[in-house]
Amino acid sequence: MKARYLLFAIAVCTGVVGGWLLIQPVGDNAFEGETVLELRQLLDREQERALALNESLSEYESLLADYQHEQKAHTAAAMEETLEDLEKNAGLTDREGGGLLIRIKPEEHPYETDQHVRVEHLRRLLNDLNRYEAEDVAIGHERITTQSAFREVNQIPHINGNPLPALPLTVYVLTDEPAELKSQMQVAESVQWLENDRANVNMTPAEAVSLPAFSQELRMQHFSANEEGEK
């Protein structure tokens, strides 16, 4: 009889404990072990860290892209600037500015028409102008560069391969100090030579002198085009 009561009591206890376990929420955090909770917390932390790392990664990537873009733009701008400077120095661009106009007119001579200036005189004139620090020079419509050739064909002067018209002829000179250049050129030897050769030389400082660009192809004997990718 006692055994029955005891078994009944144990059975009731077993049922109570089983009932407790039955009603515990399944799948809730309260029912999960500490390890799972810790793992979940760790996962959350790592996900947050991954998110932060991704954000910083995209930030740095955009920064890098900006830097590359800026660098390219900067390089391109510098190259364009250099190219412009080189073209300007080579005489490949039109130029305007203050300067000196040198007009070479023929002396009045009843029996001679189509008087041309001699090439040697022009060469001397250009030498004198360069010596007195003229920036750029154009004789008639021909821009003088380092590659300009002075030749005489059938007693007609040619510059850059083009014949110069008969006198009167105007020489355009760009300079920062037109008045000083004028005073220096008035006593220059080349002007004396021109005047000895029956020409009148008249010099006028001008505020706006425009020079045409060098129209010929530049000869580059020792240069070749750089292929893309070569260094």
Partner: peptide
């Protein structure tokens, strides 16, 4: 039948009492 009835009764009591315990004690 005594333990069967007891277990059933205990289950009813346990479910009705509804005593939650901390998750770390489930083991």
């Amino acid at each position: 039948w005594i333990p069967v009835v007891g277990t059933f009764l205990g289950l009813m009591i346990g479910i009705l009492i509804n005593v939650p315990f901390p998750a770390r004690f489930d083991m």
